[in-house]
Computed example of a mutant assay.
Amino acid sequence: MLKPVASQPSIFPFGLRIDEPVATVTDLAVALVCGYAYVQMGRKYLHSRAQVHFRNYFLLVAVATTLGGLIGHGFLYAFSFAWKLPGWLVGIVSVSLVERAAISHARGLIRPGIARFFLALNIVEMVAILVITIATLDFRWVEYHNAYGLIVNVVGFHGYVFYRTRDRGSLIVLGAVVITAVASVVFTRHISLHQWFNYIDLSHVLLAIAAYIMYLGAIRLGRHEKSLQPNSPAQTEAHGRS
């Protein structure tokens, strides 16, 4: 495994101090990718429930990573550690949205009670994590929320949809989750390539790639969405098999 390296020194363009400059730039790169996805999904007029959740997810991730890049990395010295919270909290809500997108996309293939249960649990779990994160100022709770949301709900529901329908959009979303998991390993294990491209920077680049692939999956879902709506033949078949 690559050894951790020293943190990046600050830079002073035009006399302005910027801490962790590459982390700042790569965080903003994630924001740009997600902003692009948000705008493009709006232009494509994709209005299924799952795609609305996906579009709002991209918007919130863009906001969270902008806050993270500017306040959490570049200019934290001008604030306090607690100012990391806004980016964290927006990020928590964003993951809850991508969970709801997965559940909504699968609603036509599962029992209505199961969908209602997971949608309610989604809200309860999100609120609990928000409260705990505010109380502890501990980023680990954000990581726990992300892991639960992506593995249990996103992988679980999109995996089931792909198993039942061979929905290529769901398969692409699953690929994005795999890349996100790799980014998490890079971050938690502090796998760095260089002082000027450390584990934070590398994880951000992987997250930007994952976000773009997630966008490709989200727009592809619309090609199968009608077969997953309530009272559709696919739903009737699913209930008959249950």
Rank of each mutant, 00 (worst) to 15 (best):
G42S: 07
T165V: 09
Y163G: 02
I172A: 15
V131E: 10
N56L: 14
D19G: 02
L130Y: 11
P9V: 10
R168K: 15
G42F: 05
G87I: 13
L121I: 08
I18D: 06
G240A: 15
Y57H: 13
R111D: 12
N198C: 10
A62G: 11
M1P: 02
R223V: 05
P230Q: 03
G217S: 06
R241G: 00
I114K: 08
L59S: 05
V131T: 01
L193P: 04
G149H: 01
V93K: 09
A31E: 04
T66V: 09
V30L: 09
I151T: 12
S242M: 07
F157D: 02
A37W: 04
Q195A: 12
K3S: 04
H204F: 06
V124P: 00
T66W: 02
I129V: 14
F162W: 11
T66F: 01
E225K: 04
Q8F: 05
P4C: 10
L16Y: 09
A147W: 02
V177W: 04
Q40H: 12
F197L: 15
H204P: 10
T136P: 00
I123K: 10
L119Q: 13
N56S: 11
R107A: 07
A211P: 02
M214P: 00
V93C: 07
A181Q: 14
A181I: 15
Y199C: 09
Y77R: 10
N153T: 04
A6G: 12
E225W: 00
M214K: 05
L228A: 01
T136F: 02
M214F: 09
I213K: 13
P9N: 12
I179T: 11
E143G: 13
K84W: 15
V178M: 02
L206Q: 03
Y163K: 13
H47T: 14
L171C: 07
S48D: 12
P112V: 09
E225D: 14
A128S: 09
A29I: 15
L60P: 08
R241S: 11
L85E: 11
V33T: 08
F54E: 13
R166G: 05
S227P: 00
M1T: 03
E99P: 03
Q235W: 03
L221D: 10
G68C: 07
W141G: 07
A62F: 04
L2D: 06
Y144E: 00
H53E: 08
V182C: 09
A234E: 14
Q8E: 15
L85Y: 04
R164Y: 04
N56V: 05
V155R: 05
A128I: 14
P112E: 02
H158M: 10
L174H: 12
